[in-house]
Design a protein around this nucleic acid. Structure first.
Length: 299
DNA sequence: GAAACGTGGGA
DNA sequence: TTCCCAAGTTT
């Protein structure tokens, strides 16, 4: 059983959001930037930052010439700032080794930093029209329901997930079909309270035929945030983003009362390359000041 | 395969 | 207010 491609494509043509990275004039670089930003981050928060980035850095080589600190500041509060560092590194690799052209094949894309199974195929499909399965959380949910008749997707398995979608892809317009599958999951077949009355493939849906059973897979782990290192790292980085020059450790000490956790987080940020210690012992975003050579983190 | 990794909005 | 969730990748 499969999902009617014509119904889905017609629905997509009528209903899809007019997102800037879907416009025909958007470059492959614009698509890549959008895909990295959209990893775990909602469209509404990505769109304004994406516009700033494409205005400021319209090509991989333009971004490659920026410092890491500039990139991290421009990333702002999108979250998971290592994505910004990896995108910067990817831009340098594309500029230096691929003639400033975003690669169009999945394996070459996979070799770039920050690009995994989803993003590589999303770029190949959406920027270059390749016929390859593009599987994100939306697609996994749509397939779990409409094809397998389950209440929701179980734990991810890249091999199985790719195969599940591969067999659904039509021979032509496969890239648009993938975009439509994602859009369906984002707008109609949502995690909570799906809008089945508006679904273009309602008639094909195995979950409906099954009597809409509840999800019966293993419980999904809920991520805590308050009090975690993730929160503390975010607070530390936010200080450095908001200042022009390097800051003293005493300034960073103000963001969290637990000294042990605070120092552990600062150290991990240094290890991750998100923060640098300057020659005079201050702390700053990387790439904008002469860094200390050998002795990290004083106390 | 599990855990770590930011942030904010909607229910 | 608390909890869930949002176009994942890396180790």
């Amino acid at each position: 059983m499969s999902l009617d491609a014509d119904l889905l494509l017609d629905w997509f043509a009528d209903t899809a959001r007019d997102l800037p990275w879907r416009r025909p004039e958007c470059t492959a670089w614009g698509v890549l930037v959008s895909e990295i930003m959209l990893q775990q981050t909602p469209v509404a928060r990505v769109e304004p930052i994406w516009r700033e980035w494409l205005d400021r850095w319209p090509t991989p080589s333009a971004m490659a010439a920026a410092t890491q600190g500039e990139v991290l500041r421009a990333w702002g509060k999108l979250g998971y700032p290592r994505r910004a560092l990896r995108l910067h590194a990817a831009a340098q690799a594309i500029a230096g080794q691929h003639g400033d052209v975003v690669p169009d094949d999945v394996d070459t894309l996979l070799a770039l930093p920050g690009i995994g199974a989803y993003t590589a195929r999303a770029v190949a499909a959406f920027a270059y029209g390749k016929r390859c399965p593009v599987v994100d959380t939306n697609v996994r949910r749509v397939v779990a329901r409409a094809v397998h008749g389950a209440g929701d997707a179980g734990p991810p398995s890249t091999t199985r997930d790719l195969r599940d979608v591969e067999v659904l892809l039509p021979d032509d317009r496969a890239a648009v079909y993938s975009a439509a599958l994602m859009e369906l999951g984002a707008l109609v077949c949502t995690a909570r309270a799906p809008r089945c009355a508006d679904c273009p493939v309602f008639a094909d849906c195995a979950w409906q035929r099954n009597g809409r059973p509840a999800y019966d897979g293993p419980a999904k782990a809920v991520q805590k945030f308050a009090g975690t290192d993730r929160q503390v790292r975010g607070l530390l980085l936010d200080v450095l983003r908001g200042t022009t020059g390097p800051v003293a450790k005493s300034r960073l000490d103000l963001v969290w009362s637990d000294a042990g956790q605070r120092d552990r987080c600062l150290h991990s940020l240094l290890v991750d390359g998100l923060v640098e210690q300057t020659a005079d012992g201050l702390f700053a975003l990387p790439g904008e000041h002469s860094p200390v050579e050998h002795s990290p983190v004083g106390r």
